[in-house]
Nucleic acid binder design. Structure first.
Lengths: 348, 348
DNA sequence: TATTAGCACTCGTTTCTATGGAGTGCTAAC
DNA sequence: GTTAGCACTCCATAGAAACGAGTGCTAATA
């Protein structure tokens, strides 16, 4: 345990303050600490130490003559140095989810819901983005005289389709040619590898049907492109109403709205997607990129369903959050999801 | 205006009470009515009439010595007989939405959001269900050695795909045969028309690949089957917090949760889907099928994007709701959406 | 007979005050 | 360096008081 500005005793006192505050939610006074710890110090001594801790910015007083509560800096110190790994039981749930649901989106929605039930905080799960993914194959088919269906499948087995209007009917032979052209040119390529040269060549070879190519390429970009449109599953947003420090109408409303406008949540997640960051990420108060969450803490972790198929699980609650419990839950879920696509599964 | 138990004067007084209550949200007293109307009656007379109205169940007193507020029966009478159509301006918005978004789901999400902004109530939009719809075509393609992709397109241009695992590779010729088999047997059929006989014949002809046929049929059922999995777009759920009669933590939490668990909302909508009910549907208080909404009113209307492609727009707010404004909004949006698929559109 | 004025009464809302208690900071003693 | 003691601050709570909106009823009036 590193101690530049805090000696052993201050750390123990800080620890005691935070743990007590996490439990009770009430500002904690010197007398409480005097007993709660085995330091055998009088409340007066504790008071002196507390004054120091306050000056150092680890704790603060809501008002004169109230006890102390942890500051953001205090929470940060706690999370970084003081917290113990408990690895408590969060067991039975994991199998349950994964057995009983077939489609990935259902699994993720379930995960969000369960996590919310388990923790009593608001939760979010982002659908995996297939960022570094490659085109597996493309299929154009007739729908009717004026419409063509384009289906794109990526290495991650993500399927996307788009109906493309055409000015005049396309005969079977042309369709076959277009299919061959698209597949021979694009299969195996990642988004980054499809450059202007490729596109130009494609269009040239497609002749009068180059507009279809454009449309297909748009869809490809949409399918594999960066995160602009990450799906986000949320649950337990009404949990905000349970915590007095968040439940005032104004704040709660903002928070719940943020969860409703799911896209805003994506910014909590970029950290995980870009980097090789597989650990648990914690934002405390103003550390969070989302302004409305300045009174919250956010804990996230990345999962990886399969090679390069990554998403994030996250939780948002009051700063006074049971960090250990939350982290244990996240770890367990991460473990359940990691490699899910590679493992053999029951149905489908 | 029919009057079995209410004479002209009582109706006018009831009307005045309700309108006033809708505006102010406060229980309304006899003196207020005595001036608000042009009846030129003293407050004492009004009081007598009010006592009658209360006995008849149209209004009630929150407590002795408070004014009166409308009962469910009162609201119902108001909605059925007293309300005037205002057809106020709700104009500019409609084009905006439809121009600026391409995909149907985005449009619907936008509609929900706009409606919430416009009305300050919680809103829901159900994605159209293609109930009476027919198969347009089916396409099987190779994904890799162990997987086949099935794409199903319906008359409503709904596209659904599913990846089907196969025990051993399927050669091109077989695939072609299966495609022809499926399309020649199923195209143009509605779900109800695909009966056991058809299925048996299909499987027989498919021989060793009959398991693929099963899988495809499952997907067909899923695509066109009844509403079990209607998508619901919601917005403005935090608006519940704005109305004192709903914003107590318990109630608001239940309501917002109901909107989060979108599936529950489907029951508000069945009315529209089964019947040929194109009008506006109003549930007041306990009339609603959803228990948590006993203190709310619900107003819904069906839209029809194209032949048989129907969904619902709905709004949930306090019973003290501006019904006229809400209905106007719904009407305008319905009009914008109706027939949207048939109309030529800008992009896509 | 229908309407109205008047009055006593009810009950929720707001404001103010008093009281208690938890907790602090400081000082002086150990 | 630690502790006991004390004065002080400030929030939370409860009660009391004052207020006011509104009612129901009765008796007078048109």
């Amino acid at each position: 345990m590193d101690d530049f500005e805090l000696d052993e005793r201050k750390i123990r006192i800080l620890n005691a303050i935070i743990r007590n505050y996490l439990e009770t939610g009430e500002p904690v006074g010197s007398r409480t600490i005097s007993k709660y710890t085995d330091l055998n110090l009088s409340s007066a001594t504790i008071r002196n130490e507390m004054a120091d801790l306050e000056e150092l910015g680890y704790i603060l007083q809501p008002h004169t003559s109230a006890g102390r509560i942890p500051s953001d800096k205090g929470y940060r110190f706690y999370v970084d140095h003081l917290m113990e790994e408990k690895n408590r039981e969060v067991a039975e749930m994991k199998q349950f989810v994964i057995e009983h649901t077939e489609r990935v989106d259902q699994v993720l929605q379930q995960v969000a819901k369960m996590l919310a039930n388990n923790t009593n905080y608001a939760t979010m799960v982002t659908a995996p983005s297939y960022h570094q993914n490659k085109v597996k194959f493309i299929q154009l088919s007739h729908v009717d005289a004026e419409q063509v269906l384009a289906v794109i499948v990526t290495e991650g087995n993500l399927v996307k389709n788009k109906i493309i209007p055409v000015s005049e009917p396309i005969d079977n032979e042309t369709m076959l040619k277009l299919n061959i052209l698209l597949n021979s040119s694009l299969n195996g390529l990642a988004l980054q590898e499809i450059n202007l040269a490729t596109i130009a060549r494609l269009k040239e070879q497609a002749g009068i049907h180059s507009d279809i190519i454009s449309n297909v390429l748009d869809t490809v970009a949409e399918t594999m492109g960066p995160d602009e449109d990450i799906r986000v599953y949320t649950s337990g947003t009404t949990n905000f109403l349970k915590y007095p420090e968040l439940s005032d109408s104004e704040k709660a409303s903002e928070l719940i709205s943020t969860f409703e406008e799911k896209q805003q949540l994506v910014s909590l997640v970029t950290e995980h997607l870009s980097e090789e960051n597989t650990g648990i990420q914690v934002y405390i108060g103003d550390e969070s990129p989302i302004q409305t969450m300045r009174d919250c803490s956010v804990v996230t972790v990345a999962y990886e369903l399969g090679e390069g198929v990554r998403g994030t699980i996250g939780i948002v609650g009051p700063k006074r959050m049971d960090y250990e419990m939350v982290m244990d839950n996240l770890k367990v879920l991460k473990k359940s999801l990691d490699g899910m696509l590679d493992r053999p599964r029951g149905k489908t």
